[in-house]
């Protein structure tokens, strides 16, 4: 099926290229989605105070920290990819995009470990340790805190996965020098996913002392 990109797409009255403006609007709509979820969490967290602080102490702070590091690094790679694409170094841009995807992959692996170690502790600990430390299986229905934990990080994880798929497609095009402006656009999206994590990290992992 032939598709002709309309003239409208090439017009640029605001000075922001159309594709990028579209991505900014997507980011705006995502801000309010995550904003609503996190605002709800924040209010519940303040409401339940100590009770939830105890639960928050059970999240795996090291997994959270590694994932923050991984996402920051992948953000760095995607901005390098954008720079390389701007300088028309196609091979380099291709390389950096794939490094970003790899970062997303590591993030999802850590996430997988984190989820499974909560839901199925018997996968990682012997029966003896489980009984000694009193580790219990924690699922989304355990309490509202964990419902928020799995929902928020889960929605974020879906965004990471989606970004990885789109980036693979863009990397494929960028190698041939097609649609290079999309490298920057996916970069903006990826940074936004990173930004969400920057806020999820203190909310769920490190502020258990409050």
């Amino acid at each position: 099926m032939s598709f002709q990109i309309p003239i409208a797409t090439s017009r640029n009255l605001t000075g922001v290229p159309t594709g990028r403006l579209g991505v900014w609007w997507i980011v705006a709509s995502e801000i309010v989605i995550f904003g609503g979820l996190l605002a709800a969490f924040l209010m519940y967290r303040l409401h339940h105070g100590d009770e939830w602080a105890k639960e928050a102490g059970k999240t795996n702070i090291w997994c959270g920290s590694i994932n923050t590091f991984v996402l920051l690094t992948s953000s760095y790679f995607v901005v390098l990819a954008h720079k390389a694409a701007g300088e028309n170094k196609l091979q380099e841009a291709y390389k950096y995009i794939w490094w970003t995807i790899a970062g997303g992959g590591i993030f999802m692996c850590v996430k997988f470990y984190e989820y499974t170690s909560k839901i199925f502790p018997e996968w990682y600990y012997t029966q003896q340790i489980i009984e000694e430390k009193g580790i219990e299986s924690i699922t989304i229905t355990t309490s509202v805190f964990w419902a928020f934990y799995f929902t928020a990080t889960g929605i974020h994880g879906v965004h990471v996965l989606g970004g990885m798929v789109i980036m693979a497609i863009i990397a494929h095009d960028a190698k041939k020098g097609k649609f290079l402006h999309r490298v920057e656009n996916i970069g903006i999206y990826w940074h936004f996913v990173d930004l969400v994590w920057i806020f999820l990290f203190p909310l769920f992992y490190i502020a258990s002392g409050l």
Binding site: E30, A147, T151
Partner: peptide, 25 residues
Amino acid sequence: FMISVGPLIAGAIMLLLDQLVGTAF
């Protein structure tokens, strides 16, 4: 629409989980 619908999308996910999974949002 775009600005106001975000919290409701989050809320719809929460309500869906309440219905299907049995969370207690």
